[in-house]
């Protein structure tokens, strides 16, 4: 089987703050990492390959330096990586991003299962996975916490819901988004590290994937960022210290005030 795992490079921390004096964004030295949710998708794609045979292709859309996440994927067992990079992709929202990734998967051809993390830690939208499935007209199982069965043309997975899980069967090809519960990602092996160093990472541009220009980047993105601002600061509230015998009644008085205040 051919597995494709879609991954994203994200900033390690979300520590971005607005300088209240200059009203500009302050950014600490930002390290880039594999989106934490994608690490589970990478691991699961490798486990599925080990279970039924086949190969895993990792794809990422991003700047040239996003190649690093593909090498990381190769170091834990992914067979090949493809970087999708073009300045025409600048300003892509989830619609344009899912279209672009879908075009790349079309170009790959014979694909059985597409895996994504449930969402990216920087955007938090959870829209790109289902978007890819829709652009490719494929079924999907989102929030998968376990693959129960996999065989030619059929998969059974457990989808995590708010109050339990449901067992879903799908025909193949299909797209899965996975949650943290599904596995524990492995560390790279020495062999994997060697492979990752040696791997040739092809770069696909818009022209390579037969894209419709009106679906790409800024022009292909229905949503536009209008303004950004800092949320009103909170906290720095009252601090109670001392003997629990005294604190607890004071806390209860406080709670009464706050709850009444919130209800009015």
């Amino acid at each position: 089987m051919h597995f494709v795992v879609c991954i994203k490079q994200v900033p390690e921390k979300n520590d971005v703050k607005i300088n209240p004096e200059t009203n500009t964004l302050m950014r600490e030295g930002v390290e880039s990492i594999v989106n934490p949710f994608d690490a589970y998708a990478i691991e699961e794609s490798v486990r599925l390959k080990e279970r039924v045979g086949g190969k895993v292709t990792a794809i990422t859309m991003g700047p040239p330096q996003a190649e690093a996440v593909l090498r990381e994927a190769i170091s834990v067992g992914v067979d090949e990586g493809i970087l999708i990079s073009d300045r025409a992709f600048a300003g892509s929202d989830t619609f344009a991003t899912s279209y672009t990734l879908a075009q790349a998967i079309k170009k790959l051809g014979d694909v059985d299962i597409i895996l994504c993390g449930k969402q990216a830690s920087d955007g938090d939208t959870a829209q790109v996975g289902p978007g890819i499935a829709t652009h490719l007209d494929l079924p999907q199982i989102t929030y998968v916490r376990k693959i129960e069965e996999i065989e030619e043309g059929r998969i059974v997975g457990e989808r995590l819901l708010e109050t339990g899980y449901e067992v879903i069967e799908s025909s193949l090809p299909c797209l899965l988004t996975v949650v943290k519960e599904i596995n524990e990602p492995r560390l790279p092996s020495l062999k994997g590290k060697m492979a990752s160093k040696k791997a040739e990472i092809p770069v696909w541009t818009a022209a390579d994937m037969d894209c419709r220009p009106e679906y790409l980047g800024l022009d292909g993105s229905p949503t536009k960022v209008d303004t950004i601002f800092t949320p009103p600061p909170r906290g720095g509230g009252e601090i109670l210290t001392g003997d629990p015998e005294e604190i607890v009644p004071r806390l209860i008085e406080k709670l009464k005030e706050l709850v009444v205040g919130a209800a009015s």
Binding site: D93, T94, F95, S98, Y99, G123, D124, T125, A126, Q127, V128, G129, P130, G131, A133, T134, H135, Q140, T142, Y143, R159, L160, L161, E162, S221, P222, T223
Partner: peptide, 22 residues
Amino acid sequence: TTIGRSVISRIAVETGAGLTAD
């Protein structure tokens, strides 16, 4: 929700609409 996020993402692509999460 789990269901909401899964279905609305498909609807947005199918109808070519913009979608803003959360």
